[in-house]
């Protein structure tokens, strides 16, 4: 997943979506199953930084995204942003999975 703040910001979220996204971060858990999903999706780009993706654990690169808030990052993940496709190549991830992955990559796991 490439979670970038850029020139093509997605439109504003509807309230229910924002609530759902926020709730996912409260229940998110990095389990072995989620790690496996991360390895076959987000890792495609976020390990080597392909396509301009911030690398996993690169706190400096992630800082501006983190400043935008978890809900915004979830929106980018679900809807796609710039070169990152919607769902970041994880077709079977639910919102909890994405929340755990976002926290992992931004050094908050």
């Amino acid at each position: 997943m490439v979670v970038l703040a850029g020139c093509s910001e997605p439109p504003e979220l509807e309230p229910l979506a924002a609530e759902n996204y926020a709730a996912a971060f409260e229940t998110a858990e990095m389990t072995p199953a989620v790690q496996k999903k991360w390895a076959r999706s987000c890792a495609l780009c976020h390990v080597r930084g392909e396509g301009g993706a911030p690398r996993v654990g690169d706190l400096q690169a992630w800082a501006p995204r983190v400043a935008g808030g978890d809900v915004r990052m979830m929106q980018h993940t679900v809807e796609g942003l710039n070169r990152m496709p919607p769902l970041g190549y994880c077709m079977d991830c639910d919102l909890d999975d994405f929340a755990a992955m976002i926290h992992l990559m931004t050094g908050r796991h």
Partner: peptide, 8 residues
């Protein structure tokens, strides 16, 4: 625990 809509 929701799966977001699928998108291409």
């Amino acid at each position: 625990a929701a799966a977001p809509p699928w998108r291409n």
